[in-house]
């Protein structure tokens, strides 16, 4: 699996499956599957947040604790906090603890899935998803990323240059001699860069994409209306606004994409494994919707008294299927 689209499809499939259920058994399976994917490809990464992903696991106890302190529902009382404590005073129940842990599991699975994708997709992969209508903004981000190593080197150079003048940062204001040359240097570089770009024919968007902008605004307004409708009537009626809203935005985007006049140089090839990944992602999303399945086991609600969650091997298997990149990644060159 090499194409960034494969990973994004996997992420979408993960989110959809995790979002669909609150059954802790399925959620634990999902977490296991994602950890399997994560461990299948050990990449060297100097990203501080990627390397310290273990803190994500703290989500479960934190969420459980929060919910237990907060919620007064549930029949199995563990102990009672004095009433004079604001907000948290009252009975702490096992059910509330469980419900919190369930939510923590959902969050854990999501964050883990994102951290796996972050590990696999480079900045350029992310930028390749930016629609061509946003070419200028994509260039801005590219420049920012390109100049990061240079800025870091610059900080070292400036720090040395100030040190040899006897500069020793003590208070906040003492950082001015470090910050100002960095900013000034960057602005001077920006001037050179802008000339260099102009000399290479970079210019403002030929046509302001006002039709797209208008459609997006209209779409957002429609979706917003759709969200308000359930307050007045039925949830389903909201869809009358939401679906056309989404359709409007998508159509406008596709239309302006063709007119943008930008041709991307770098286009990644979809390998056979990537096609397989896309296919499997669709399967993961669609499998639980199969008509012959009983979807009741997806719902799990601990209140008022804790019960054992139900388990359907079809859904369990569906969750395990999330682990597919672990097996595709090993043969990434096919």
């Amino acid at each position: 699996m090499r194409h960034p689209l494969g990973w994004v499809a996997w992420l979408a499939a993960c989110s959809a499956s995790v979002w669909r259920t609150r059954n802790p058994l399925y959620l634990i399976l999902a977490v296991l599957a994602i950890v399997l994917v994560r461990n299948s490809s050990k990449t060297e990464s100097d990203n501080p947040s990627v390397s310290s992903w273990r803190w994500i696991f703290a989500m479960v106890p934190i969420s459980a604790l929060f919910n237990a302190l907060w919620t007064r529902v549930g029949d199995t009382r563990l102990f009672v906090l004095p009433d004079w404590l604001p907000l948290v005073g009252g009975a702490i129940t096992l059910e509330a603890l469980t419900y919190g842990a369930q939510n923590g599991l959902v969050l854990l699975a999501l964050l883990l899935a994102f951290s796996v994708v972050n590990q696999h997709l480079s900045i350029h992969d992310w930028i390749s998803f930016v629609p061509r209508v946003f070419h200028q903004l994509a260039v801005v981000v590219t420049i920012a990323v390109t100049y990061v190593p240079l800025s870091i080197r610059e900080i070292h150079v400036i720090r040395d240059a100030q040190t040899i003048r006897g500069h020793q940062p003590r208070g906040a204001r003492d950082w001015v001699p470090l910050f100002v040359p960095l900013l000034t240097g960057a602005l001077e570089r920006a001037l050179t860069l802008s000339e260099s770009m102009a000399a290479r024919g970079f210019a403002a968007p030929v046509k302001p994409s006002w039709s797209l902008q208008g459609s997006v605004i209209a779409g957002a307004a429609l979706i917003c209306l759709g969200g308000l409708t359930p307050m007045l009537s039925n949830q389903i009626h909201g869809l009358i606004f939401i679906l056309p809203g989404i359709a409007l935005v998508v159509i406008a985007l596709l239309f302006s994409e063709r007119r943008s006049g930008v041709v991307r140089y770098e286009v990644q090839h979809l390998w056979r494994m990537d096609m397989l990944a896309l296919f499997l992602s669709v399967v993961v999303v669609l499998l639980p919707m199969a008509p012959w399945l009983d979807s009741r086991s997806l719902v799990y609600y601990p209140y008022p008294v804790l019960t054992a969650p139900a388990f359907d091997p079809w859904f369990g298997g569906g969750m395990m299927l999330i682990a597919f990149p672990a097996f595709l990644a090993k043969r990434s060159h096919i």
Binding site: H135, R200, A203, Y265
Partner: peptide, 10 residues
């Protein structure tokens, strides 16, 4: 970079 907006085919 300069070619991406120049109108050339890929």
């Amino acid at each position: 970079f300069a070619l991406e907006t120049s109108g050339l085919s890929r």
